[in-house]
Structures are given as structure tokens and as C-alpha cells.
């Protein structure tokens, strides 16, 4: 089992709230700030800058909503599994055997055609249909695995971000250092110097960090592939954490897109084969039927 989209939605909200708390905590007044005469109280414009984090976080995870709920695949997988069992099971084979048993002494042009082009093709058609339905089942399973792993990884990344925001603290007695950094980063954010990864590029902060946790999504096409949580988010202020979060979310999106493309390749290959050998997947309608 894994996360559903609703749970990831909640995690995004939690992370935004934790980011807000971190900003307010780090910009809080401390006596040492006045003592060193460098502290400038936060302005409303600062609040606006802080709130600019929200859309960045939202945008970073918007791709998640393009996936269906992983659970919705279950019914489809089960339906195809049951269909396959019906086709390759004893019931259908028994009926075909009954027909074959009647045919030994059938003669005439129509009888020959009926036997050769219809009945005798039925067994191979049934085998091929079994393979076809197994491929469809695997396609659904792969789609579910890609979806589920994407959500799980997004959830793990958001958990890491939530933890990082929660752990951010001013450095106590010399809090002005944090305040100064914050002020610098806010200005940098406002002027676009710290490029948002959500717009396509990674910030300098993010570029210097090591993103080791981006799950290899190629593994997603293998059902039940082990999940790998994203790496720790670097940073010692909310902007750095946000940059890293947005960057890693972008990495996850790219990896998920690639997994989707790989899945398309696999499905199209099977679909192409299916359509190229259509006559092998259904018994030919015999001329005995009057075509």
C-alpha cells in the first residue's frame, strides 16, 4: 500500500505551514538583535516575499495531480485477471474440445473449411489471447507502480521538507546572523537571483547540494520495486530548504515522466505486435458462416 493523492495534498499543506512557521520563527525578535543594533523588524513586504514560497511549493508538486489514484488500478487489474482466467481456463477449452470431438467425420468443402480455419485455429488463438491479456495486466500493474511510486516519493520528499523546516532555528544569541541571511535571501528571491527550480533551473544553493535521493524511476515499471526515499534536504534557512525541495520535486517529476515514457514504449510495442498479428488472436470466421 502507498499514499493516495489526498494524503500528498495534505502533506503539501503541512509543508507550507511548516515553512511559514520557520520564517516567523527565524524573523522573531531577540534581545541580542537590538543589542547589536542591526535588527530591522520584518515588514509587510517581507511577509509577501515569504508567501511567495507557497506557489513555488504548489507548482513543484502540481504534476502529482495528473496521476490517477493508484487504487483505481486495482479493479482493472482484477477484471483483466478474471477475463484471462475465463479464456485460458477449463471452461472454454472444454467447450472447444467438445466441438472438436464432433468433427472427426465431417466432410465436404464447408466442413473442411470449418475444421481448418476455425476450430483448429481456436487453440492457438486462446493461447495468444492468454498472453495478450497477461500483457494488458502487466501494463496496468506498471501504470499503477509508476503512479504509486511517484506519490510515495513525493510524500517522502515532503516529509523530509517538513522535518527540515521544523528543525530550522535561529542561532540563539547571535541571531542577527540568521536575520541578515534571511534579509539577503529575501531580496535575492524577490529579484530572481535565486532562480526557482520550479521555473526550470536549479538555484545556486540547490546546485551545490547533492541530490542523491531521486528515485531511479526505471525501477517503477517493475511491480513491487523497493521504494527509496529522497535524500536529506540541505539548507539552514527556509529559502534553501525551499530551493532544495522544489529542485528535488522537479527531479522526481522528470524521473516520473521518463518512467511514463518507458511505459508508453513498452505498451506501444505490445500494442503494435497485437495489431500486426491480429489474425492470430481470433479464430477466422469460416466461410461456412456464409461470408
Amino acid at each position: 500500500m502507498g499514499l493516495g493523492t489526498a494524503e500528498v495534498v495534505q502533506k503539501v499543506a503541512d509543508v507550507k505551514h511548516a515553512a511559514w512557521e520557520a520564517w516567523t520563527r527565524l524573523t522573531a525578535y531577540t534581545p541580542s538583535m537590538y543589542a547589536e543594533d542591526v535588527y530591522v523588524p520584518p515588514q509587510w513586504s517581507v511577509k509577501n516575499e515569504i508567501e511567495s514560497i507557497y506557489p513555488r511549493i504548489d507548482a513543484a508538486f502540481a504534476w502529482v495531480w495528473s496521476f490517477p489514484e493508484p487504487d483505481t488500478y486495482d479493479a482493472a487489474i482484477e477484471a483483466v485477471r478474471e477475463v484471462r482466467q475465463t479464456i485460458v481456463g477449463t471452461e472454454l477449452n472444454g467447450k472447444v474440445e467438445d466441438v472438436k470431438g464432433k468433427l472427426d467425420d465431417w466432410r465436404g468443402e464447408g466442413g473442411t473449411n470449418f475444421r481448418a480455419n476455425f476450430v483448429h485455429r481456436f487453440e492457438s488463438a486462446i493461447d495468444n489471447q492468454g498472453d495478450m491479456l497477461e500483457a494488458v495486466t502487466n501494463a496496468y500493474k506498471s501504470g499503477q507502480a509508476v503512479t504509486q511510486t511517484s506519490l510515495n516519493d513525493a510524500g517522502a520528499l515532503l516529509d523530509a521538507a517538513w522535518k527540515a523546516f521544523k528543525e530550522l532555528k535561529s542561532d540563539g544569541g547571535s541571531g542577527w546572523g540568521d536575520a541578515a541571511k534571511l534579509a539577503f535571501n529575501i531580496i535575492a528571491l524577490g529579484t530572481g537571483i535565486a532562480a526557482a527550480a520550479g521555473t526550470g533551473g536549479a538555484s545556486a544553493v540547490f546546485a551545490l547540494s547533492v541530490v542523491s535521493g531521486s528515485t531511479g524511476f526505471l525501477a517503477n515499471v517493475i511491480p513491487d520495486a523497493p521504494e527509496k526515499a529522497p535524500g536529506a534536504l540541505p539548507g539552514d534557512d527556509p529559502l534553501q530548504v525551499t530551493d532544495a525541495l522544489v529542485g528535488q520535486a522537479s527531479e522526481l517529476k522528470n524521473a516520473s515522466d521518463k518512467a511514463g515514457r518507458d511505459l508508453v514504449t513498452l505498451v506501444n510495442r505490445d500494442l503494435g505486435f497485437l495489431l500486426g498479428h491480429e489474425k492470430d488472436f481470433a479464430p477466422t470466421r469460416p466461410t461456412i458462416a456464409g461470408a
Binding site: S66, F67, P68, T72, Y73, A75, A76, A79, V80, A135, V136, A139, Y140, G143, T147, G260, L263, V264, V267, N268, D270, L271, L274
Partner: peptide, 15 residues
């Protein structure tokens, strides 16, 4: 009809 998937995944066409 029970599941779609992201556009272009072609799972539906396969089924």
C-alpha cells in the same frame, strides 16, 4: 473504463 492514466500512456488503447 475504470482507470485512465496520464495522457499518452496508451494503456487504455491496449486494453
Amino acid at each position: 473504463s475504470s482507470v485512465g492514466g496520464p495522457a499518452g500512456w496508451e494503456i487504455l488503447a491496449f486494453a
